[in-house]
Structures are given as C-alpha cells and as structure tokens.
C-alpha cells in the first residue's frame, strides 16, 4: 500500500501519521506539501491533525481551499481512499467530501484524553479488522469536534450506515458522559456514501504502538493495508 500524508502550515500530527503508516505498510509515506497541485500516485491519502492555517476563519476552511485539495477531491471521487483525522476531518467537511460540520465543543473546552469508540460499521476498507460494535481505545485532542448535521442529513448518514464510530464507555455503552464534545448522536467519525472517505476526530495514529498506550488505532491502518495492498 502506497500512502501520502498532506502537510499544511500548522499541521502537527503529520509525523505521527507518517510513523504509523511506515510501521504498518513497511513503506515510507510521501509527505505532500499543501501548495503542491500534483498528487503522487498512492492508494491512501491521509490528512492529519493540527491547526492548519491557524484555524483562521473556521477550522479547516482555509486548508479546504488550498491547491492540493482540488486534486484530493478529484481522486476521492475516483475512488482513492482518503482518511482525515481531527483537523483532517474538519478539512473533509469543509471541502464537501463529507457531510455535516465540526463545531466548537459544547463544553467550550479543549479536550485531550483517551476515549472509547464503538465500531459502527466494520464492512469497510478502514474498519474490517475490527469486530462490529467492538469498543476500542483511542485518544482525542480538539477544541472543535462537535459534529453537527441537519436532521435530514443526519437521517441519511444514520440510515445509510455512514457512521463509522461513536463515543462510548469502556463497556461499549453509549452514555452521555462518554461524549467528549457534544456531537450529535455521539458521532466520532463518518464515511462518505462510497465508503472510500473516512473522517474522524479521534487519533488512530496515536494508538498504533504498545509503547505509547495501545494498538487499537493501528488496526485501522492494518485494515487499510489488507484492503488496499
């Protein structure tokens, strides 16, 4: 599996993503600068977390209009797998590849902690190494992760199986206090209709190594490795 990590001014999880992809794929991911207009030929495009363009105007709004995003949107529409984590999820909603929007956390506080997620759909290239409804441990670190969609859009996301992950407790129960940011229906990540684009606020790349807290996140990259190699 060949992969690329997009780097914006203000990205700060790009190298974590690079390490996670290198470990799983055994190949060096290509780091692609936001000002480039050419994408290398890869199987997976990863848009990492961070504060692209200083979160000016809205999180992800500037990055969504950067030169490289036109090419990413084109490739996503042709079926190339795209993973957006944290700020990357915000960029994917801002550029229209994913529905809904990420708003300020309901608590108004930046939330940085480990959370549990239930796997809501394990029939995709991103999630096939998980059990359906399995609780997994990853971490969140964001101030604007409060997923919102209008009722009509939300019904479609829910009805079509586009919800990838929801925040839950360690037992996999969807309780209110397990939701760190006020996201509607506790949604932590969603797919596009074709299931080749995934956006999620939690960081799978930060749980890709036993030495730093766990490997549940790494299984997402292993799923991709299985599907795209």
């Amino acid at each position: 599996m060949k992969s690329a990590v997009i780097v914006f001014p203000g990205s700060n999880c790009d190298r974590d993503m690079q390490v996670a992809l290198r470990e799983v794929t055994g190949k060096e991911p290509q780091m692609v600068w936001h000002g480039d207009s050419q994408m290398p030929n890869v199987d997976l495009i990863a848009i990492p977390g961070g504060f692209s363009y200083g979160d000016y105007l809205r999180c992800g709004a500037m990055a969504a209009n950067s030169p490289i995003m036109k090419e990413i949107v084109k490739q996503a529409n042709e079926g190339v797998a795209v993973l957006g984590v944290c700020n990357g999820f915000q960029v994917l909603t801002e550029c229209g590849l994913l529905p809904g929007a990420l708003m300020r956390n309901a608590s108004l506080r930046f939330v940085c902690k480990d959370v549990h997620l239930t796997v809501e759909n394990n029939t995709t290239a991103f999630t096939s190494n998980y059990q359906q409804n399995e609780p997994i441990l990853v971490s969140v670190a964001h101030g604007d992760g409060n997923f919102f969609a209008e009722p009509e859009t939300l019904n479609k996301i829910e009805g079509d199986g586009q919800v990838a992950f929801r925040y839950c407790n360690a037992d996999g129960e969807l309780v209110a206090r397990a939701n760190p940011n006020g996201s509607v229906n506790a949604i932590a990540g969603i797919f596009n209709e074709q299931r080749n684009v995934l956006g999620m606020m939690p960081h799978p790349e930060r749980h890709s190594d036993k030495a730093i807290g766990g490997t549940d996140g790494g299984r997402l990259f292993e799923s991709l490795m299985g599907a795209l190699s």
Binding site: L57, R58, A61, N65, E94, P99, G100, M103, F148, E150
Partner: peptide
C-alpha cells in the same frame, strides 16, 4: 465559497 459554512 469561503466566508460562511452554509451547513451551520
């Protein structure tokens, strides 16, 4: 195109 996110 940019100034508002018309979803929200």
């Amino acid at each position: 195109k940019l100034l508002a996110n018309t979803v929200i």
